[in-house]
Write a protein that binds this DNA or RNA. Structure first.
Length: 913
RNA sequence: AGGCGCGUAGCUCAGUGGAAGAGCACUUCCUUGACACGGAAGGGGUCGGCAGUUCAAUCCUGCCCGCGCCUACCA
């Protein structure tokens, strides 16, 4: 058999297998298949997107779950798709239009511009989906969905119309978040608050109209005074009480405004105790305006420029207006000072422009009736959060939910299905373009459709069922809804997860997913958010090119613990390099196995272990490794069931590296050497080869969800019994086979390992070079251990490269066999391990070392004895603890006795000298 | 301001009511036919501080000190 290349080269393997899997249709799940369903829908990346570490993490997690369940014979379906991403996409195309043609979207007009976006999409394709393929994602590509495609759009409109008919969608003039740059409304969630912006609290005076004085107000936004329609004071504030009801002169516009009393808005302890009220540009003032029926005067246009209401300041940008207003107030001697003030300023999530609260007619979803069932569903455990602590955050937001502004003044998106009649002014809501006004019957040409489109999230919240054919009652929905797991970053818990729960319960009457797995954010190694501007990004595409998708995936899986809130995955390329070393280790272990398969017959070995290990006449190392691989399989499977991804990955890693490679392969080398190449050794060879292949093959299946490519490549090359499947993807995931659980062999092997380590430690300590042959003497306390060690002394000798191992009962003397003054001694548990080293052992140093060991053991024993001298402990501690302690004390006493014997021996030889 | 969470080996992080673990880094030795992207043997931690509950606390409770995140309208 050809030797594999020395180092693993992922680039030679990964694309080939992905193509093969796709061609064989392994990723596709048949909705008719008579298997238990397992479904995940991908959080649809933006069409404009390019693969970043966040996608890589989510993809890795989702593919691990999907492959794992697929291998457990579930009907595993992982649904791909992309989001039209309203603002983001429109911005990209607008920028391109500007750069290439020097035009704005208004130059083209709406229809032409939307056409250009579709063209752009056709040109760039779904680049992000192609990138997901390089990750090894086993997505069911036949089900790829785009949120703007006709079928999906119909679902969005259906949802809108139903909610409207149910009275859960309404159109109203409200104070909303407005982005003057993008010139659109934003939902509350789309506003990011910059905490702690250093600003100023500016004070100026409004003169009382009756000339009886003035009222000083404090504000962070002086320019909004152009829209003031009142000044509020606290009704019980003695400083201002007398002014309530009086009028104030506005210095710049021809208007008098009242002094009103409002205990909600005004905190008398803050500022001057008087608050200017601008109902059209501040949420609190808006509420105050409603309470007092104040006029609401908008002073900005949609670009944030002062409008005609601003009198002499009309035409100025908001920030220029601030300076101008302040300057004029100073001129008029109305300025009353200012002090530094730290406050929060809202920015547009997309373009970072300071958001302007504006009075505007928009569409809203009434959220409370939708939130209630979602809260109940989570309370009742119909959907579970992992980690569980996120449910608290969820409840907090859901219990304080506010109506959702869903209209956007964009061109790219699902246009609101509302038509306004030019004849009767009434509004018609319809699933398809109406031919007549629903109210007065006016013909279509009198109808004008609403210009606005829906918030992108209004389409995404339908994702788990709209992708499966809703509103039609499809077989897909029946099979795959509710989906099993939703995996996403915690950053979109409110944007997406909470809203999907609400939509799913409302439209499908069932939760959209059983489990929400919230993963953390990936940051750079210092914990900073990765950003192109900062230049600290790690591009998964580059990482895959250089190190392979398997390494990237394994690195991420290794780091994916149940992360605490507020903690991120600090990622560096070093993590990938570590994973790559692991891939290389696997590769070379497979190489070793393949090089040692002379004459191996997989069918014969399969027959041999068909009834478990007892009838197979296996030796200790084989019984041990086959037992271990089963236990590890159980551990990994359990960890995945509990969403402990890092634990699963690390458990498999440690098995492969530390047990299979470091121990079993070394034991197998010796075993194969012993068996030789002749016919006499055929049976012994078969058992060892079989154990090697079985352990490695099982490891490949265990690791396949984490590292799909390398495991497939190696799996393909391993000999398998006839009738084996064509691909590792369609094998069964390893589940425990308890017949191979072998406590006795594991215990024996643990003892053997302990002794091997002890002998090696002596050799290292005494600086005995490799080839030097030594004899190891073992003194044991009981016959059972003596029997075991007698049986495995050859194995020990092979592993520590000594010429001979002799075992005696403690007390039985080795004297007469070796010169006792030159023996190095150490303990492996309670087994005394001695190596006679003529001329290499300094009796004084050896005495010192042993005394140190003795002191530690005595200290340990004293601790336990003291504990056991406490009657309350004996009375209240559970039996297992007592037993464990007692066993430990027995072992300690035996060990102490051994050291004492060794010390006496040294002293005796000292005397003789 | 409220809520959630974190503080464990030099670094990044697991973990458990019964005298602490991993990866990387570090020290010494080893190119013996799977792998130097390797092997062997090691060093290293009063588990943030103080009190309490308990037979027993790194783990539970309270307070304190540092730090992160989320939500919120303080002019």
């Amino acid at each position: 058999m050809a030797e594999l290349p020395k180092n693993y080269e992922p680039s030679a393997i990964e694309p080939r297998w992905y193509a093969e899997w796709t061609a064989r249709g392994y990723f596709h799940a048949d909705a008719q298949a008579p298997k238990a369903p397992f479904a995940i829908v991908i959080p649809p990346p933006n069409v404009t997107g390019s693969l970043h570490m966040g996608h890589a993490l989510g993809t890795t997690i989702e593919d691990i779950f999907t492959r794992w369940r697929r291998m457990a014979a579930y009907n595993a379906m992982w649904l791909p798709g992309t989001d039209h991403a309203g603002i983001a996409t429109q911005m990209v195309v607008e920028r391109e239009l500007k750069a290439k043609e020097g035009k704005t979207r208004h130059d083209l007009g709406r229809d032409e511009f939307v056409k250009r976006i579709w063209e752009w999409r056709g040109r760039t394709g779904d680049r992000i989906l192609e990138q997901l393929k390089t990750m090894g994602s086993s997505l069911d590509w036949e089900r790829t969905t785009f949120t703007m495609e006709p079928q999906y759009s119909a679902a969005v409109i259906e949802a809108f119309v139903r909610l409207y008919e149910e009275g859960l969608i309404y159109r109203a003039k409200r104070l909303i978040n407005w982005c003057p740059q993008d010139r659109t409304a934003l939902s509350d969630l789309e506003v990011d608050y910059d905490e702690g912006v250093q600003g100023e609290l500016y004070e100026f005076a409004y003169p009382l109209a009756d000339g009886s004085g003035e009222l000083i107000v404090a504000t962070t936004r002086p320019e909004t005074m152009l829209g003031d329609t009142a000044v509020a004071v606290h009704p019980d504030d003695p400083r201002h009480k007398s002014k309530i009801g009086k009028m104030l002169d506005h210095p710049f516009v021809d208007r008098q405004i009242p002094v009103i009393a409002d205990p909600i808005l005004v905190d008398p302890k803050f500022g001057t105790g008087a608050v200017k009220v601008t109902p059209a540009h501040d949420p609190n003032d808006f509420e105050t305006g409603l309470r007092h029926q104040l006029p609401m005067i908008s002073i900005f246009d949609e670009a944030g420029i002062v409008n005609a209401q601003g009198g002499e300041f009309a035409g100025l940008d908001r920030f220029k207006a601030r300076k101008a207003v302040k300057a004029r107030l100073a001129e008029l001697r109305l300025e009353r000072g200012s002090k530094p003030h730290v406050h929060a300023v809202g920015h547009c999530q997309r373009c970072e422009t300071v958001v302007e609260p504006m009075l505007s007619t928009q569409w809203f979803v009434k959220m409370e009736p939708l939130a209630k069932p979602a809260i109940e569903a989570v309370e009742q455990g119909k959907t579970k959060f992992v980690p569980e602590s996120w449910s608290k955050t969820f409840f907090h937001w859901m219990n304080n939910i506010r109506d959702w502004c869903i209209s956007r003044q964009l061109w790219w998106g699902h246009r609101i299905p509302a038509w306004y009649c030019g004849q009767c002014q009434d509004m018609t809501i319809a699933r398809t373009t109406p031919n007549f006004c629903g109210h007065c019957g006016a013909p279509a040409d009198k109808l004008q459709q609403d210009d606005d489109v829906l918030d992108t999230w209004f389409s995404s919240w339908l994702w788990p069922f709209a992708t499966l054919g809703w509103p039609n009652e499809t077989r897909e929905l029946k099979t795959f809804y509710p989906t099993t797991v939703l995996d996403t970053g915690y950053d979109i818990l409110f944007f997406w997860v909470a809203r999907m729960l609400m939509a799913g319960l409302h439209f499908m009457k069932k939760v959209p997913f059983r489990t929400v797995y919230l993963h953390t954010m990936v940051t750079d190694e210092k914990g900073n958010k990765m950003s192109k501007v900062k230049g600290n990004t790690i591009d998964p595409v580059d990482v895959i090119k250089e190190h392979g998708a398997d390494s990237l995936r394994f690195a991420l899986a290794w780091l994916t613990t149940h992360a605490a809130q507020g903690k991120n995955i600090k990622f560096s390329i070093g993590n990938v390099e570590d994973a790559r070393r692991f891939a290389n280790k696997i590769w070379n272990s497979a190489n070793f196995v393949k090089l040692n398969l002379e004459g191996y017959d997989a069918d014969r070995f399969a027959d041999r272990i068909a009834d478990g290990p007892d009838n197979a006449e296996l030796d200790l190392p084989e019984r041990w490794i086959l037992s271990r691989v089963q236990r590890v399989s159980e551990e990994v499977d359990t960890a995945l069931e509990e969403y402990r991804i890092a634990d699963a990955a690390q458990t498999a890693y440690h098995f492969v590296w530390n047990e299979l490679c470091d121990w079993y392969i070394e034991l197998a080398k010796a075993g194969l050497k012993r068996a030789g190449t002749g016919p006499d050794g055929a049976s012994a060879r078969l058992k060892i080869q079989g154990a090697l292949v079985t352990a490695l093959e099982t490891s490949m299946r265990l690791l396949h969800p984490f590292m799909p490519f390398i495991t497939e490549e190696i799996w393909q090359q391993l000999p398998k019994p006839s009738g084996a499947p064509q691909s590792i993807m369609i094998t069964l995931y390893p589940v425990r086979d308890v017949r191979f659980y072998d406590d006795a062999s594991e215990a024996s092997m643990a003892l053997v390992q302990k002794i091997i380590v002890a002998v090696r430690a002596i050799r290292t300590e005494k600086k005995i070079p490799g080839p030097a042959k030594v004899v190891a003497l073992l003194a044991v306390t009981d016959d059972y251990k003596k029997t075991i060690l007698e049986g495995y002394k050859q194995i020990i000798a092979e592993q520590v490269r000594c010429s001979e191992v002799r075992v005696r009962r403690s007390g039985a003397s080795f004297s007469g066999e070796f010169s006792l003054e030159h023996i190095a001694t150490t303990l492996a548990g309670d087994v005394e391990v001695m190596i006679p080293l003529e001329g290499l052992v300094d009796p004084v140093a050896e005495t010192g070392k042993l005394e140190k060991d003795l002191a530690k053991l005595e200290n340990d024993l004293a601790y336990l004895e003291k504990k056991h001298a406490n009657p309350k402990f004996l009375e209240r501690a559970p039996l297992e603890v007592l037993d464990k302690d007692r066993a430990q004390m027995a072992e300690l006493r035996a060990a102490i006795a051994k050291i004492q014997v060794a010390l006496e021996r040294l002293q005796a030889s000292e005397k003789r000298r």
